[in-house]
Design a protein around this nucleic acid. Sequence first.
RNA 1: GAGGCUGUAGCUCAGUCGGUAGAGCAUCUGCCUUUUAAGCAGGUGGCCGCGAGUUCGAUUCUCGCCAGCCUCACCA
Length: 601
Amino acid sequence: MPERALAAQEPGYRHEDPPLPHLWNGEGEAGSESEGGSRPEGGHLFRVADSDVHASALPPHQRPPHEPRAWRRGAGAGRRHRAVHRGRALRPTQGEGRGIGAGLTVDERAARLQRLGELREGRLPLYGNRFRPTHSIPDVIRDFGPRTSEELEKADGSLKIAGRVLTLRSFGKAIFAHLLGGGAKLQVYFRRDAMGEQGFAQTRWLDTGDWVGAEGRLFRTRTGELTLAVESFQILTKCLRPMPEKWHGLADVELRYRQRYLDLIVNPEVRRMVEVRQKVLAGIRRFLTDRGYVEVETPLMQPLAGGASARPFVTHHNTLDMRLFLRIAPELYLKRLVAGGLERVFEIGRNFRNEGISTRHNPEFTMLEFYQSFATYEDLMDLTEALIGEVAKESVGGHRVTFGEGELDLTPPWPRLTLAESLVRVGGLPEENVGDPDRLQRLAVERGLKLDALEGTGGPGALQMALFEELVEPKLVRPTFITRYPIEVSPLARRNDEDPSVVDRFELFIAGQEIANAFSELNDPIDQRRRFEEQVRHRREEEREWAAVDEDFLTALEIGMPPAAGEGIGIDRLVMLLTGSASIRDVILFPLLRPPKVDAT
RNA sequence: GAGGCUGUAGCUCAGUCGGUAGAGCAUCUGCCUUUUAAGCAGGUGGCCGCGAGUUCGAUUCUCGCCAGCCUCACCA
């Protein structure tokens, strides 16, 4: 998997990562010297507090809860073993929700809750917020990772770190653990001789998944791993649910999407994706604002859903008693702003399209749209090469990205083909067929293309598009601009001056996917009105009763929009490309899923 | 919306040519002071997705439903 490969490059995950996440470990930390010493057969303890003896006399499932007091008795007396509480650990709890930790009977959660209760009883600062790490775990690795054992020994002063316990390997009087913090892992070493009995005794309340703060000094183990020798520590937050399996992790994609918090802990590539995505967004903002673009926000709730051909989501405002649509595109609002004299504007935001779901489609998705006055679609091709080139460098460090089995090179410049050229040169159609509707029709039928696309608006344009999508698009792996689209599929784009059957438009394809769509904007209000009315007539035939002409937008054009070019770039797909993700759900933290079935309780 | 595949312990997965189920990890118990998928020993844990049908008997066969994934359609 490419994600794994990416993740493996991270410093925190450096040491011999297995093919799957390398987590979870461990024996529970059997708390060594139990007060009761050896146990009689059957696993029940006798020499414990009175209440415990009492409880132990009952079968496990009937034992009442009790309140251990051992902690108050100080270090010596406090050295109680978990066996003491075995009875309670077996209490069933009700299933709560689904997924990890739900529906257990003999329950890990009960055991963890019990430890939580004991910590409370001991008046330890659980859920406290006064622990202040001196170093993040990535800091520690960066600053001390290169140092030798001798250098680490000479360094004076201890440091404080915080993280989540990923693995626990207990040897009775010593425990190794890995803490995860800031996306990196650091081993910590609890040793009774170094911590004192009282300090070490606290480790028996430790579970995988807990957040802990630890203070100590760095050293290297026999195997050379940088490790914090803990002098003292505290449990900051208890984890009450079982963690995913340490070796295979959380593989069930449904659980990964539904419980992204677990996915983030266990699968490093998720965090990596979040970081890449953030850099992409920041990089785009910087790139455009450096060039005089102004970032704006336009309505997500719109009385008319325009700017694209998708079906909208419908909602309702109570006080105004008004039907509203979640926007399917910001286009018509951004162009109003261009008409108002904001000569360069952009918006990065969510669009909502009430269409099918697939590996490339989520009902809500993020798009960049930008408009530049006094520019043409050709200018935007240059701009797009520079933008995506820079963003790739900033987010993943170069122009080469892993993609499927291989690698993809994004180094500009990229080839530019007209749609007709691409049909011949990429799609392999005989040249003389491309302009001939009858021959195109015949070819389309021969190849069994969908007939609804062949009807509809008809004409050679729609046929060319159908053939393009079938024959050319999947082959456009390296970045390629396709220009000169038929006018009937481009209702908002400006007509080409030489050939009125096509528009001044390009789409950018990478890895067989449409990444960007741009055109010189139509700013002739008469032509625009005619095309809108044509479009609405078609929509109504398709029983899209909400289709309507946006009169206010036409008014803006009548006020006058300067000549301009505009472009939309799908952010999710760009991030997919840069992270080598096969599904859009892997780059959206909470993709839309049906709600999980709730068991009647 | 159509087709295909999948659903078994908290997690990752076997399995049952129809006789109500196993492993590893986790959890619980005992031992273990440089481990790292730690180790050794002993336990707990399952409406086998849900419902119906066939059958003496269904987790297994059939049908329906639910959820997920993949392909296609709509769409970007």
